[in-house]
């Protein structure tokens, strides 16, 4: 996993609650056996007026001018600001892959769905939970100010607004360490290989029916 570097990023507001992973990356793109290249299909059904199929060239697509990601002022955004329960539904890791491949480093919302939240950390994309009030305020500010950006510091666990307001966010210490150092979680777990083997040997005797 790549290290999470602190981020000063342009913010794009996606003003919807319960954005599901089917919307983030529709199923026809899940047929790919690769891990990269999903960014151009991010929010495909909202982002384009035509029906997207794998392999289509972006230049030949019809962008939906009403969709926020297509607006000129939000080009190059690195931070997605959205509403509650972001990433609900399917466990597809293709959703965080698509967000990251598009260029997002941080997603800010009042809450996230459990599986999505977990998946983002695994690839070095940072989900930040801030209160409804703060998120509301950020929505107002981003709508009023072209070029609205936020500074995210994972070490300090802070989000700083252009006016210098600082918001603290929570992050699990284990996940934080993994993100900051870009650690390979499998390698970390394999440090306990002997313990796993011992657990397994004991279980094989106690509950042999689990090993058929």
């Amino acid at each position: 996993m790549e290290k999470f570097l602190n981020c000063k990023g342009l913010v794009v507001p996606l003003d919807r609650a319960n954005v599901d992973t089917d919307a983030i990356i529709p199923k026809q793109f899940l047929k790919s056996i690769n891990r990269s290249g999903f960014g151009r299909y991010l929010f495909d059904e909202w982002r384009y007026l035509d029906y997207g199929e794998p392999g289509m060239e972006v230049a030949q697509r019809k962008p939906n001018p009403d969709f926020v990601l297509n607006q000129v002022r939000y080009q190059g955004a690195r931070i997605l600001l959205t509403r509650a329960n972001f990433g609900c539904g399917s466990s597809r890791e293709h959703a965080p892959w698509a967000l990251q491949d598009y260029g997002f480093q941080v997603i800010i919302a009042p809450s996230f769905a459990d599986i999505f939240f977990n998946n983002t950390f695994k690839i070095g994309l940072l989900p930040i939970v801030l209160s409804e009030n703060i998120v509301d305020q950020m929505f107002r500010e981003v709508n009023l100010n072209v070029g609205y950006y936020l500074v995210v510091n994972l070490e300090d666990q802070t989000v700083v607004t252009p006016s210098g307001e600082t918001h603290i966010f929570e992050v699990d210490s284990f996940r934080k360490k993994n993100l900051l150092n870009g650690l390979d979680e499998i390698e970390l777990t394999l440090q306990y290989a002997e313990k796993i083997k011992a657990f397994e040997d004991k279980k094989r005797i106690e509950q042999p029916w689990l090993f058929t």
């Binding site: 891990r35 466990s91 597809r92 890791e93 293709h94 965080p96 599986i115 977990n118 998946n119 695994k122 690839i123 979680e185 499998i186 777990t189 394999l190 290989a193 796993i196």
Partner: peptide, 11 residues
Amino acid sequence: GTSEVEHVLAT
């Protein structure tokens, strides 16, 4: 997710 699928396969 897929990263965890790999994690379970490996560990």
